[in-house]
Design a protein around this nucleic acid. Structure first.
Ligand SMILES: [Mn+2]
Ligand SMILES: [Mn+2]
Ligand SMILES: [Zn+2]
Ligand SMILES: [Zn+2]
Lengths: 142, 142
DNA sequence: TCACAAAAGTAGATCTAGTCTAAAGTTGGA
DNA sequence: TCCAACTTTAGACTAGATCTACTTTTGTGA
């Protein structure tokens, strides 16, 4: 639990209520790419009085204020990403887990030369299997 | 309306009923990336007796048999793609339209060197605006 | 300290895409 | 012609997400 969580919210123009800090202290520091209901399940463990509507309201507010991104990468899973920097995604087709790949892991050439499209943003989306599978259920970086 | 549509289905191990041919003759020849309900709306114009369940059953069957791909690219839109070859996708953020980019329009380097992941498949996903906008609502290649 | 308006949070209703179920219709070979 | 397998169907059901109408909390300024 970071002492500066509330300050970070205020910096982004968000009034830092207790519920919002609770939600932030999980969702802004995980690389799990959780769904809204994943966030709810996690936050409820410590703050069982937080309602589902508040989870949705808060996550959408964080997206609007640029603290989170909304990803739709795989069937029926709308997912939140606390990594708002440019990066690529790898989806494990066995587990459904989503992994971040740093931007310079890959290089995409000729984007500028695409005719007829103004590209604002892009990423590479990869699917396959993660090898190894050590450190699997490593407890989350709260 | 192609005379060989039924043959194409049979080649893929699909018994060619009238409903299936009707659905195929739209969805296997469009580059619109339609949702299931888009397909239903279109097919109903000519074949109003076809039920929603049959649309879903048939589209899922086509995917299973390799005639179609299932894409999840953008919020709340599970979409079918009759282009089953490797290619990239550009999403117009204004209209929501999805455009195919041929595989060799772009080049992605270092995919093989990614450590710890077995990549089975990948594509580049681009967002922005399509320029020009001529030939906009061009009638579909049925 | 109190009044009170704005902001935050809430339960439950509603919406929607997609799946499932159980029954009816169709087909084609024996 | 018979019948089993296949196809199609209406509508029930599910789950994620949003909306609505209401209550609670917060903070300001008289
Ligand atoms: Mn989940
Ligand atoms: Mn649609
Ligand atoms: Zn990510
Ligand atoms: Zn495509």
């Amino acid at each position: 639990m970071r002492p500066d969580e509330a300050a970070r919210l205020e910096e982004h123009g968000i009034k830092a209520s207790a519920h919002r800090v609770a939600i932030a202290s999980y969702v802004l520091h995980t690389d799990e790419h959780p769904s809204a209901d994943d966030v709810w399940a996690r936050v409820k463990q410590a703050f069982p009085m937080v309602s589902r509507a508040t989870i949705y309201n808060t996550l959408n507010l964080f997206v609007e204020k640029g603290l989170l991104r909304h990803l739709v990468l795989t069937e029926g899973r709308l997912v939140f990403d606390s990594n708002v920097e440019k990066h690529h995604h790898f989806i494990d087709e066995g587990t459904g887990q989503i992994y971040d790949l740093p931007w310079d892991t890959l290089k995409v050439s000729r984007v500028k030369q695409i005719k007829g499209f103004d590209v604002r943003d892009y990423q590479v989306l990869l699917r396959g299997r993660k090898r190894g599978r050590k450190r699997e259920k490593k407890s989350d970086s709260r």
